[in-house]
Design a protein around this nucleic acid. Structure first.
Lengths: 239, 239
DNA sequence: CGGAGAGTTGACAGCTTTCAACATCAGTGG
DNA sequence: CCACTGATGTTGAAAGCTGTCAACTCTCCG
């Protein structure tokens, strides 16, 4: 395979999402076995702060949570956006390296790591979960390091369309006549900007531009209708 | 803890490196138990390509390896730089999401994942390793998303100084009179640029600028003497 | 109705990229 | 031993993208 031959590239991002629901149900059961405590959060609640002592492991059952880091001068980078089924809170030092904050109402299962360490079955599940999160972090590094503002926003929007976007995009569903989709962002412009490594102004400008081009329509500022998913997908840099 | 309060921030990046040597030795033993096959590579050998079928797990025993992804138009992002003790090759789909290429001579242990899945002890080690790699990916996301070219290069150089750099930098060793350090990059300007999300020209310009300011001296293009580690550390954005 | 927060838009500045020329280095072969 | 050659690295000038700053609009709620 040559440096530029991309024909055989993995469809990891997609498959990650297809596997999510099955993984999700299994993981809930698994956590329950270990006497997990279930916690409920409102939007913009903090589960833990960067620097807090790391003792427990968390499993996102319902809702969306972001992990972010801050620089001393206030610059913020959202490093992960978690979905149901994802696990978070593991730390390699004694302290959390990120702040975990909810984006929506969220339900989280909390469990002591020492309890689950004894279960090989749970460990395998954990490994799979971490691996898929690492793949998402790899994609995100490409976005942050090599994509233009337009490509970042397009990638972000595609990320919210089930079974689409990413390197192994399946294309429009042949069963369906149109190729549109409605998505809910659950994030403010500031959060999107901090996730994409941009400013709010740039995010706003790119979204306006996509509207002007007729690719999307904003029903509310965080409720977007994609007229043609495929044409948006063409703007992600993956094609 | 307020949005901007950084006093209690974790020293994860540092502790990751301090733990590396102990983890390293233990992991070698662990892999040997499972009948790992030891492989040797020359610089710029490819261990596997993005898109190759993922069957095995790799443990870097000696040397340096980078993982990178490509966009169809040839843009490249180096997503991880691995050191001895790191584990790689896990895939959430059936295919590798990155290409793994050596930067130096390298020795790698190769093992079938199914063999190690049965060992809780190994699984715990794997979890710790993945966690510390995820923390490194988080730091890298901050670098790519929020740091200037100068900060990126300074962070990169500090990353190669043992026990320094990162949020929890311990400062200069009080036992030592000077605060200098010699580092070997093991990477071309192109590889550094692709790691830092910059162009080779920008990397070259920043390095020249650091020379002009008297912060560093380049003995060879990939062999750098840091005159005052602390003053370089001040430029990373972490202070 | 009024105020605060979130989002949008415009003008301009600045940083990084792009493009091009040149320098340096290492390896090869005469 | 030295000239040649290709790869790698450096530097300059100009362009372009994104950030900054500021003004304005929109939406939500009291």
């Amino acid at each position: 395979m040559s440096y530029l031959d991309q024909t055989a590239v993995a469809a990891n991002d997609m498959q990650r999402r297809n596997a999510a629901s099955a993984k999700h149900l299994a993981a809930i059961a698994s956590f329950a076995e270990f006497g997990a405590k279930s916690l409920k959060f409102s939007p913009h609640d903090v589960v833990y702060y960067e620097g807090d002592e790391a003792r427990r492991l968390y499993h996102l059952e319902r809702g969306t949570i972001m992990l972010f880091k801050l620089l001393p001068d206030g610059r913020r980078q959202v490093v992960e956006v978690l979905r149901p089924g994802d696990i978070f809170g593991l730390a390699s030092s004694s302290e959390h390296d990120c702040t975990a904050e909810t984006l929506t109402d969220a339900q989280v299962q909390e469990i002591d790591l020492r309890q689950v360490e004894t279960s090989p079955e749970f460990q395998r599940r954990l490994t799979r979960c971490l691996t898929s999160q690492m793949n998402a972090l790899h994609d995100h590094a490409v976005l942050l390091g090599r994509k233009s503002a337009h490509e970042r926003v397009a990638s972000f929007l595609m990320y919210l369309v089930p079974n689409r976007g990413g390197v192994g995009c399946v294309g429009p569903d042949p069963e369906r006549v149109d190729d549109s989709s409605d998505i809910k962002l659950h994030m403010t412009r500031q959060e999107i900007a901090d996730y994409l490594g941009l400013t709010i102004e740039t995010v706003s400008r790119v979204v306006s531009d996509l509207k002007r081009k007729g690719v999307i329509r904003a029903d509310k500022s965080d409720q977007i209708h994609l007229h043609k998913v495929c044409s948006l997908c063409q703007m992600t840099g993956f094609h």
